[in-house]
Simulated scan of single mutants.
Amino acid sequence: MSETIQFGGLELRFLRDKAETGGGLTLFEMTVQPNARMPVPHHHEGWDETIYGLAGETTWRIGGEDVALGPGEVVFIRRGVVHGFRNDGTGPARCLCILTPGVLGIGYFREMAALVAAGAPDPERMKEVMLRHGLVPAP
């Protein structure tokens, strides 16, 4: 599988989806443009995230603390921990994202990209999509 989805300063290139791995993992490479960020800080109960830095630097807000992630560095986000990310740099940053088990699939990202492409997304609609796919927006 190789599908790329772009929205809001993010580009996600899917390498493996939950359907291909029998729910074992979801794997994608993410490019974060300068000044881009995760639209909504959130947590999830159904999977953990491991993020491996490939290029540039992103800042991950994990459980209320900022953690810088550069090439060759890794962060682990346990299920239930509120998190988000941003790129404060002047160039794009890339990282490899591994979701285990592979509960979240590419469908979530397709839906979010469609909402963003339609114009200023309705926060309630975004929340509904997130909750339906197992992501819980932070209060």
Rank of each mutant, 00 (worst) to 15 (best):
M30N: 11
E29R: 14
G24F: 02
H83E: 04
T4I: 11
A117G: 08
L115F: 06
A117V: 05
G80M: 07
A120H: 11
P101D: 08
G89A: 10
D122P: 07
P92T: 13
D122C: 08
H44V: 01
H83F: 01
H133D: 13
G63S: 06
G22L: 05
L115D: 02
R16S: 13
V74N: 00
H44K: 05
A118W: 11
G102C: 04
G119W: 14
V116F: 13
T31E: 09
R86V: 02
G46I: 00
T21C: 10
F85M: 03
P121Y: 03
S2W: 05
G53D: 08
N87T: 10
L96M: 11
E57V: 10
E65W: 00
I62E: 03
A68F: 11
G84Q: 05
Q6R: 15
L104Q: 05
A117Q: 12
G8C: 05
G56A: 07
P41C: 12
E73L: 02
P41Y: 15
V75E: 00
G105V: 05
M126E: 13
P92F: 10
P34K: 09
E29W: 04
P139M: 05
P92H: 12
H44Q: 12
T58F: 02
L115Q: 07
A113R: 02
T90A: 14
H133W: 13
L54R: 10
R16M: 13
T4Q: 14
A138P: 01
M30R: 14
P39M: 13
D66L: 06
L99F: 12
V32K: 04
P123M: 06
A117C: 06
F109W: 12
G22I: 03
F76A: 00
P123E: 07
R78K: 14
A120C: 08
A120G: 12
I77W: 00
P123W: 06
L99W: 06
V82A: 15
H42P: 03
F28M: 04
M1A: 13
E111L: 09
W60P: 00
R94A: 09
M126I: 15
I62C: 01
G134I: 07
A68Y: 08
F7I: 02
G8V: 01
V82Q: 05
G80C: 06
A68N: 11
M1S: 14
G91S: 14
T90H: 13
G22K: 04
G70P: 02
G84V: 02
E57C: 05
R61G: 14
V129E: 09
A114I: 08
V82S: 09
R132P: 09
P71F: 12
G22V: 04
R37Q: 15
L96A: 03
E49I: 02
G91K: 13
P101Y: 09
L104N: 02
P121H: 05
T50H: 04
A138K: 08
M130T: 03
S2P: 07
G9S: 05
R16P: 03
L104G: 00
G102R: 01
G24W: 03
K18Y: 05
T4L: 09
F7C: 04
G105R: 03
E11K: 15
D17P: 04
E57F: 02
K18W: 08
P121Q: 07
E73I: 00
G70Y: 02
P39R: 10
G84C: 06
E124S: 11
A68T: 08
E73G: 03
